[in-house]
Write a protein that binds this DNA or RNA. Structure first.
Lengths: 404, 404
DNA sequence: CTGAAAGCGCTTACAG
DNA sequence: CTGAAAGCGCTTACAG
């Protein structure tokens, strides 16, 4: 049975149900012939122009076209003129070289993978922007992978990036799950630079914060103001950054010779809902803390939502220190005191580090660099005091002393 | 002159300046032989495993390996067992198929390009996330391109995406510049879906807002509250969305039978600094407006900064309507009245539209669909009244009446 | 300086 | 069911 279509072979075999069946033996040959005819009749603009097409039109070899377009400098004026002609025709035909074929041949890709937990988070959006811009300067493209902090998603994405043969990877590792094992990366020569967080293998270059300092700065500020009951809202302790921020928190208490109230240490996934309910729980305690530190952009949002819901006056009733430096922090009333994280700088450095590794990989004289131990750098954070912190109200202060 | 290195050929010709010179004729042959030897001695884990490598190890043909890994169902138990063996070895060697080679052969890429103005903007970050998630469900990857609303950057990125032979493109077009001409897209069969904004060619599917309604809703709300001197901060009028939002503004005035004060219509690039200085200028006028509408996420930020700098009390002294629905809008005090834009839904629809086009392109029976006119949909916006708007103070109101 | 040829790593009709 | 062969669109040593 046949039905008419507007494309070759114009008559198409269909089965009784009316569905076309290209594999139908009887029409197979006809089908192929028609496809060929169709392709020949089709205007070349409909297909992607190839080197071969250009060379055919000019009656020269594809090699010559390739060389002309790659801009090899020629000496003989005759050759130059010909190259000019080739370029003109290429432009006219809208020739766009097939970078897939080129990559396959040259075994080089100007593409890197960027793996981040969440792009709606101001902090990572900033990182993504800067990585993208820095790499664009060197003519590298970015493939964007969002993990939502799920280790399985991340493992899948690592595999995809390997299959894509990206030149390198910049990633903020997801929290690790012993159940999910990553394919051994040693097997592939793809350079990886870790940003913000470090995975436990410790085999990659990493551009990190001084997280201990970050935790310390926020806590010390509140201690100096006279707070004693300081709650801290942390990410999961399986993430090294969260552990280190806690370490900084403890260190500040130790230096101030004030004992830590373990009940005020809260930890959970980096999601606003978590920070929201954790903060509500903190506020509903009989002895509520006089200050809170929320240790990430997401956690700040949840904490602010909870404070708003309970109608807490900041900083009169409770002080708040945020982490990061989203633009809207300054638009809040009171504006938010925060531990600013130099993510822009870090993103740029991560991109440059990766580019250096990629270059070393293509340069056989740089063996030492390739096999050198991973480079880990840590960036200082900076406390920015705004309006959301002040000394604790007298009442709370006394109550706190009673607790001790 | 020679120097020793740890990689083949172990002795490397170097010139007088100590730089290595691989093209040196004398050592060229030696060099190639050594490379070969090195490659043979190298453990296969250092190279990316190929089908050929697997087939060599098992003494079978690459075809068979390819078929086994692509999971063709086999009937004979003997064949099944062999396939199992092949898969096991592949896993053991950490085989990751080269998707470049596969794409070159099959002429199909599971990669789409996403072009957006700015990823630090909450609005576009949300769009990017949803596009990425929706496409990931269908196993498509996303190449991220940020234009900063620069038409030249956009044109370059379109070219790169063509060269990458992406399966499709979702883009928020940058404002158009007559000086920059895009390569004719008709020449390539890459489907494009436009999101949020529509380029002037009107040849692509587009998923848009009802921008007239959006402008209308915000303005009508303020008019109903009794405001007459309502300033509007718009993006560049070369962007259709900005023109249409303005149209909605005018329409609301017309319906309310109130004349428009043209001096209160401000337009400029979608950047916070612009909105900031525009707003300062508005506030410094002798007859300042009693209300402002900022028609994008970026513009809202700039306007808020200016209001804060002048210490304006919102809504007592001036009312403010924002656009979009960033989470932090609700954390402001007063929380922000806004025209919410259904960007999440739109991003998902754009992704599905693109997927449908891609499928149609691979299905020769769907000619009609391919050549059908572009599909344009517009999504309704929704006014969310919060705390930043209230009727104008009596004084201002009278002053306004005096003006008329 | 140019062209013929090989080959990057796959897939897939074709012949056995 | 399997293997030999062709070919996707490029680049690039090699021989003229």
């Amino acid at each position: 049975m046949l039905c008419a279509v507007e494309r070759p072979p114009f008559l198409l075999p269909i089965d009784k149900a009316g569905r076309s069946d290209y594999t139908c033996k009887r029409y197979h040959f006809l089908w192929r012939v028609c496809i060929k005819l169709w392709e020949m009749s089709t205007s070349p603009a409909d297909q992607n122009t190839t080197l071969k097409e250009i060379s055919r039109r000019l009656g020269i070899s594809p090699s010559t076209v390739s060389r002309a377009l790659s801009g090899q400098d020629l000496k003989r004026p005759q050759a130059r003129q010909r190259a000019e002609e080739i370029r003109r025709l290429a432009a006219e035909l809208g020739y766009a070289p097939n970078s897939i074929a080129r990559s396959l041949k040259t075994n080089q890709r100007r593409l890197i993978g960027l793996i981040i937990p969440d792009i709606m988070n101001d902090y990572y959006a900033t990182a993504a922007t800067l990585v993208q811009e820095t790499l664009a300067e060197e003519d590298y493209r970015v493939m964007l992978c969002v993990t939502n902090d799920d280790p399985r998603t991340e493992a899948m994405q690592m595999r995809v990036l390997r299959e894509e043969r990206v030149a390198g990877i910049i990633r903020v590792p997801a929290p690790q799950d012993p159940a999910v094992k990553m394919a051994p990366l040693r097997a592939s020569p793809i350079p990886v630079v870790e940003l913000v967080r470090r995975s436990s293998s410790h085999q990659f270059d990493a551009v990190l914060l001084d997280d201990v300092q970050a935790g310390f700065q926020g806590t010390a500020h509140l201690l100096e103001l006279g707070h004693r009951e300081i709650a801290i809202v942390l990410g999961p302790l399986s993430v090294e950054t969260a552990r280190q921020r806690l370490e900084g928190y403890r260190l500040a208490f130790e230096r101030a010779q004030v004992p830590v109230n373990e009940a005020l240490i809260c930890s959970g996934p980096y999601r606003r809902e978590v920070a929201y309910s954790v903060t509500l729980a903190l506020l509903d305690r009989p002895h509520r803390p006089t200050a809170i530190i929320a240790t990430s952009n997401e956690l700040v949002i949840g904490t602010l939502q909870a404070l708003a819901e309970r109608g807490m006056r900041v900083p009169e009733e409770i002080s708040l220190v945020g982490f990061g430096n989203a633009d809207w922090f300054t638009l809040l009333r009171p504006s938010l005191t925060t531990v600013a994280l130099p993510i822009r700088q870090m993103a740029v450095v991560a991109a440059h580090t990766l580019l250096a590794r990629i270059r070393a990989l293509h340069d056989p004289t740089a063996v030492e660099q390739i096999e050198a131990a991973p480079v880990v750098s840590r960036y200082a954070t900076q406390l920015i005091v705004r309006q959301s912190t002040q000394p604790p109200a007298h009442g709370s202060s006394i109550r706190t002393d009673e607790c001790l």
